[in-house]
Structure formats: C-alpha cells, structure tokens
Design a binder for these strands. Structure first.
Length: 554
DNA sequence: CACCCCCGCGCG
DNA sequence: AAAGCGCGCGGGGGTG
C-alpha cells in the first residue's frame, strides 16, 4: 500500500511479489477498503510507516491483523548488513503524535514528499529487504524479528489510540495528600513551601532554592556537611538534621514536577463518553532504544512512578489484567545459552530463589545482585564478589555474556538471538584505542583507553541479554494481541493499554479477565517456543486482576 | 528568547 | 555516592 497525494495505491502481490492487480482509492475510502480485505482474506499489509496509516484506520474503527513496517524493518536490516547498498529511504519520519489530521498547513506542504511514496517505491523497498533477508545467515530468525517489530508498531499505535484509563480524582487526592492543595500557578504547594522554610532554617540559608543543585551543595557544605553532590545516595550517608526534611522535599518536588497537576492537565484526556475513565495516551516509539526496547516520547510513560499508579483505574464493569514476566532477562540468557543448570534454577516461579537453592548465594537478595551484576558487568562490591561462583555454577550462560563483553572491548558488534545488531563504537572510541597502542603512549592515555574499552564491553554484554529479552517480549505482545482479537468484537474486546519492558496491562471486560490472564501467560510460553524452540527454560508470568494498577503486587 | 548541557531521579 | 546496563523528563544555569 502506498499513500500519496491524498490517494492510496494498493498493489495486490503474489507470494513471490509479483503484482497481481492494482487499485486506487481516495484516502477517505481507505478504511473501508482495508476492512473489506481484512474480512475477506486478512492479507499482510505492506506499508512504509505504521505511524502514517494506523491512526486514520483506528479512528475509523478498523484494525488489521498483520503488517510489514518497512521503515522499522529497514532500520534493523541496515544495521545488520551495513555493507549492502542502501539507497536513501523514500520516506520522511512521521511521529504517531503528528497524525495527518487536516490542518491549515495542508496545501502548504509538498504532498508527494510528506507521504509514503509511490506503489513502485514501496514495492522496490520490499523486494530489496526480502533479498537481503534471504541472504542472511539465519533468515528464519530475522524474519521473526521483522514480523514482531511490525506487530509492535501496530500495538504501539493501538495503545496510543485506546489510552490507559486514568482517574483524575484519585490522582488529585494523591497529590493533595502528599503536597497540599493545588497552588496558584508558579507557587509552591503548601506542604512543599513549609519544608523549604524548615530546610532554610536548618542550613541558615534564608534565600536558598533547594531545586538548584549548585545553591544547595554550597549551602550544605557551608553548614558543615561533607558532600560533593546533592544526590539522595550521598545525603543518606550523612548525619545531620537537614537530611530528613531535604530528602522529603526532593521526593515531593519530584512528584510535583514530573507527575503533578501540570502533567495531569497536559497529558490526561477527558473521557470519550460518560461512564468511562479519562485516558493517558502513552506515545511509544518501537525500536527507539538501541537494544530494541521501546522508547517513549512525551508524558514519561516509561517512568510512571509507583506513587501515582493508583490513578490507573479500569472503566466501570472492566478490569485491569496486570502481568509481569518473572526474571525475563536471566531466563532469556538461560534459553539462548542452553544452560540447563540455569534453566533448572528457573523452574518454579522465582529464579533468584533457585539460585539460592543452587548455592550461588545465601539470600534471594544476594542472588539477584549477583545475577544482575553478571548481566550488567559489575566488577566490584557484592556483585563482584559473587561473580566467581556464578561463573563456576553456570558456565554456559555466563560464557555468552563474557564473550559479548570481550567482543565489545575489542570494538566488535554483537547480536541478539533473533539478529538485532549492536551499534559499532564511534570513531572517537577507535581513535582512543589506536592512540593507546602506539609505542610512546602515556600511562594516562592507556588507562583511559582501557576504561572506555571496558565501558563498551559492558554495553555489548548487556545488549545481547536486554535485546533478546526485548524481542521475546515483543513476540509475547504480538501473540497476546492475536489471542485478544479472538475474544470479542472491537467494542467489548480486551485490549493492551500499557507495556513496560517485561510488564503488560490489558484492559478487559470483567467477565473475560480470567480468560485474558490465561492468554497472557500462554502467550509468553508460545513466544518462547517461537524464539527458542523446545527449550527447557520456563517463562512464568505473574498476573493480577485488579481495578487499580496500585493493587497489583510485584 | 531559544538552545544546549548537566544534574538528579523516575522506570525496567 | 555509585558500584553495574538501557531509557525520558524537568529544572537550573549557561550561551548566543
């Protein structure tokens, strides 16, 4: 499908990508055409950019089953095969928030440039990508990744469209209880203002603005506190009466700045109809993170603090199915490495407890620190001390991350299980490595180079695990979306409303919530089978059926 | 005023 | 005061 100049060109392709037929339709008729084809034979739609096509379809109440998002697929393929010929893309970047709604600017922009190209261009890009795919070392895996990435684009567009149900009243109650009544614009809420006076008094700094790290640090040092930063970590270690009110102030100021009344005004959209909650519309950016995780843009959807999660409330008669994939990263590592010991530790619902049972650490907390340390590349502290035992107990799993680290330290690229490729280090990195290997290189230059080599090694070490977990999560979402579509018509259909790396929320009619919870768990198992085949590794999901996000414990 | 960087902190 | 990865955001503070 190609959208251009207010018209849509649809090419019907055979399996070997020959054009069977062509048709044209006005943009206004697109939704009807898509709905007809979905009902008839549910094709896989190929288009340049889901952000361009999905919003008008969703607005018209039309959903598609499968698509190829050429923009996202190109990004993955180009990264994996940088040496192939990649002509300049024929498309511009479109954010989902910039939906092609009619504005005064229409007619001023070059319509041909502002859209997804001609049918021939779209087809040529598809053919190019499929040829690259066919020549890949593991075309099956990469094909799965591209399908999952494209499904993710559909899901992100749908979540943006549907929104996360939000209760303004609950949110306001939390803010008022914490901060005091909503103040006039520009003024501090009452409880916050009172704390500022306490802090000023204790530090004998009558004009201090505690929001300024520079001013605050100066005042703290003048009052005799031995700190070099104003971060919470540093303050917690200091014994002084100002510490407690200051930490309290920081907590409250953060809530006000990040998710206070101004945030509510900017991001919470009034209910579409009576009897429903308001909505927060998370703007996800699939593929936005280097490892393949989703990023977000605006609203801070990936940082919804636990403090205000009580404001996430299902519509009347509906429930939230809140689910998180337990320890998905170490389990992904166990599966990709084929480490039977680590797989065994993960049998049951708590892998960290399994590590304790295996004697890796004395407590669950220690075991978690050790495991995360291995994934992140910790060298010192408690995690560093526990590493030798982890290496001995799980040689196959740890070998995967150690190898990735060595590759990164040497300037190489690494790959996720499905074939997403890490960014090569920048030229400046290579230059500093080269400089350090010169005969007369100073000790300082060598030390700096070693440091940046280790830094890059930690990035590649984590990339293989975080990235593989991200593609597993993507397949989880895609399978879950497929199952949810079978449960009910659009109006009563359970739908994804939130996604946070290893956690999902489905908004579901009450009577379907149990079924949804089962589908959520089964979908992850199915996704793991798709990626890893008959793996011994279990991927348990913790689910809770609640009215408020805050009531889901994990 | 717009723009940029730094700091600090929220999330996984 | 961060050891140990990946992000986004708001406020301060500087620059042009």
């Amino acid at each position: 499908m190609a959208v251009q100049g207010g018209r849509v060109e649809v090419l019907d392709l055979t399996d070997d990508r020959r054009v069977r037929s062509r048709s044209q339709v006005a943009l206004a008729g697109l939704a009807r055409l898509v709905a007809q084809r979905e009902a008839a034979d549910a094709p896989r739609w190929v288009w340049t950019d889901t952000n361009q096509v999905a919003p008008p379809l969703l607005a018209a109440g039309v959903r598609v089953g499968r698509c190829v998002d050429l923009r996202l697929c190109r990004a993955i393929l180009q990264h994996a095969f940088p040496d192939r010929t990649w002509p300049e893309p024929h498309w511009p970047t479109v954010a989902i928030g910039q939906q092609p709604e009619p504005t005064l600017l229409d007619g001023l922009v070059d319509e041909d440039a502002a859209v997804g190209g001609s049918g021939e261009q779209v087809l040529a890009e598809l053919v190019r990508q499929q040829e690259v795919l066919a020549s890949a070392p593991s075309p099956g895996r990469l094909r799965l990744l591209l399908a999952a990435e494209s499904a993710g684009a559909l899901i992100a567009a749908e979540i943006y469209h549907d929104g996360l149900p939000w209760d303004r009243r609950v949110h306001d109650q939390i803010l008022t209880a914490e901060l005091g009544q909503r103040p006039a614009p520009g003024a501090r809420p009452q409880r916050l203002a009172a704390l500022v006076e306490v802090i000023r008094g204790l530090l004998q700094a009558p004009a201090l603005n505690p929001d300024s790290p520079v001013e605050l640090l100066r005042a703290l040092r003048r009052a005799g506190l031995d700190v070099t930063t104003t971060s919470r970590w540093a303050l917690r270690e200091v014994d002084h009466p100002v510490v407690e009110p200051l930490l309290e102030y920081k907590r409250m100021a953060r809530l006000l700045a990040a998710n206070g009344w101004a945030w509510m005004d900017a991001w919470i959209v009034p209910a579409a109809e009576p009897g429903r909650k308001d909505r927060f519309h998370p703007e996800y950016v699939p593929g936005g993170v280097i490892t393949g995780r989703w990023a977000t843009s605006g609203g801070g959807a990936l940082q919804l603090p636990k403090q205000i999660r009580a404001a996430v409330q299902a519509d009347p008669g509906w429930r939230l199915v809140v689910a998180d994939a337990a320890q998905i990263e170490p389990r992904a590592l166990a599966a990709m490495s084929g480490d039977r010991g680590l797989a065994a530790a993960g049998r049951g619902s708590d892998l960290y407890q399994g590590l304790v049972a295996a004697g890796v650490a004395g407590t669950r907390k220690e075991a978690k620190v050790a495991m995360l340390g291995a994934l992140y590349g910790a060298t010192t502290g408690a995690a560093g001390l526990l590493m030798p035992r982890l290496l001995r107990t799980y040689p196959r799993a740890t070998a995967v991350v150690e190898r990735a680290a060595r590759t990164g330290e040497g300037g190489g690229v690494v790959h996720t299980w499905l074939g997403r490729t890490s960014t090569p280090p920048p030229d400046s990195w290579r230059e500093s490595q080269a400089a350090a290997s010169q005969p007369g290189a100073s000790a300082a230059v060598q030390a700096r180079a070693r440091q940046s080599a280790r830094n890059w090694g930690r990035f590649t070490r984590n990339f293989v695990v975080q990235g593989t977990a991200a593609e597993l999560a993507l397949c989880w979402l895609a399978e879950l979306r497929r199952r949810l579509a079978l449960l009910a018509d659009l109006q009563q259909r359970p739908h994804l409303v939130y996604f946070l790396h290893d956690e999902v929320i489905v908004h579901s009619p009450e009577e379907l919530a149990e079924q949804v919870a089962g589908d959520v768990s089964a979908s992850l198992t199915e996704a793991a089978r798709l990626l890893f085949g008959a793996t011994e590794v279990e991927f348990p999901v913790h689910t809770a059926i609640v009215s408020s996000y805050a009531d889901a414990e994990h």
